[in-house]
């Protein structure tokens, strides 16, 4: 294994395209990011921005056809994931990289007992016997806080509530003690109160087990207290990338500002209608030559509509894809200073 310098995952220039009747869908178009051991990365963006495809690419789970990873490097713990045979990838899936999905109602197999679904992972990857796997499954259910785990283990998914199913998914994902956990909108389908519990659980387990985490969401409010750094995606591109603290305090991209404005803030503006970015995300099969966000951006100029924006470095850890990144950043800093006064 090569030297990794504490980096668990690095993705470089990843492009994943889908061949559709409508043309080539550039779902992910040149994504670069890095995740250090023990860190939590947030990936934020509206629906269709390519968050799931990015992470399914890391797991090599893109259905092919119609999809294909056409370019880029994915290096996990020193391993070039794209160069692996499918059998070698399977040894990583579920063992070293685990995933939980958006909809707990449909992500568990309705025909199999919870115990069967939990046991098959450790039997496969840890070589557990039936008894060992059963005992381990029980331990995992207790770990994720499912009451009466002993009896619930032999039940079927439909006998669990949404929140409980997501706990089962988390138990399943963590049963082989993976180095990286990818949580793809783990709370989007859940009630608000349950959402907080599940996030708390992930945070707690991550701290205890030292797992690195990628947390995908379209809600910036969710990642605020959870992540070390954030990438903001739009139309298959990284629009902004910064530490969580800096991204919230001094965003350098109009899209990020729009997302921040649309986070519900219980502290003030009660009763006021929530801000929404005008318009809809673009069709990634037919992108205009300029900035893909220009149509919806309140400060777009002719330059934005005609020329593709540069990826501007604000500082070593903060980048923004915008013709006016520095100006937007300066405004954010000014606002920040005003608030602190």
């Amino acid at each position: 294994m090569s030297e990794t310098n504490g980096t668990i995952l690095s993705v470089n220039g990843l492009k994943t395209y889908f061949q559709t009747e409508d043309g080539v869908v550039k779902a992910v178009d040149g994504i670069t990011f890095e995740l250090k051991k023990g860190e939590t990365l947030g990936i934020v963006g509206e629906s269709g921005s390519g968050k799931s495809v990015t992470n399914l690419s890391v797991m090599r789970l893109i259905p092919e056809p119609p999809g294909k990873i056409v370019a880029g490097d994915i290096v996990f713990s020193g391993i070039d994931v794209r160069a692996l045979s499918i059998d070698e990838v399977r040894k990583i899936r579920g063992k070293r990289i685990a995933m939980i999905f958006q909809d707990p109602m449909t992500s568990l197999n309705p025909f199999l007992k919870i115990s069967t679904q939990l046991m098959e992972v450790t039997r496969l990857h840890l070589g557990h016997t039936k008894d060992e796997a059963y005992a381990h499954a029980l331990k995992m259910l207790k770990l994720v806080g499912i009451p009466d785990a002993g009896t619930r283990l032999d039940e079927y998914p439909h006998q669990f509530s949404g929140g409980m199913r997501q706990r089962v998914m988390i138990a399943m994902a963590l049963s082989c003690d993976p180095e990286l956990l990818i949580a793809d909108e783990p709370t989007t389908a859940l009630d608000v109160t349950i959402q907080a519990q599940i996030l708390e659980l992930i945070k707690d387990l991550k701290a205890r087990m030292g797992t690195s985490v990628i947390l995908i969401t379209h809600d910036l409010g969710v990642v605020a207290g959870m992540t070390d750094k954030i990438i903001v995606m739009y139309a298959g591109k990284v629009f902004e990338q910064a530490s969580t603290k800096e991204l919230f305090a001094t965003p350098a991209n109009p899209y990020t500002k729009g997302l921040l404005k649309s986070v519900p803030d219980p502290a003030h503006e009660q009763g006021k209608e929530l801000y929404q970015i005008p318009g809809l995300p673009p069709d990634v099969a037919h992108l205009p030559p300029g900035c893909p966000f220009a149509e919806r951006c309140d400060r777009a100029t002719d330059l934005c509509r005609q020329q593709y924006p540069p990826f501007v470095e604000i500082n070593a850890d903060h980048h923004s894809l915008c013709h006016f990144a520095r100006e937007v950043y300066a405004e954010s800093v000014a606002e920040q200073n005003k608030q602190e006064l």
Binding site: R90, R93, G94, S107, E120, L124
Partner: peptide, 26 residues
């Protein structure tokens, strides 16, 4: 195409197991 088949694949199961244990019944 369903979600739980994607879950089964994400667990590292081989296609035969995914098909026979997870897919066939439904």
């Amino acid at each position: 195409r369903s979600d739980y088949i994607r879950t089964a694949r994400a667990k590292g199961l081989d296609e035969k197991t995914v098909l026979l244990r997870h897919g066939l019944r439904g």
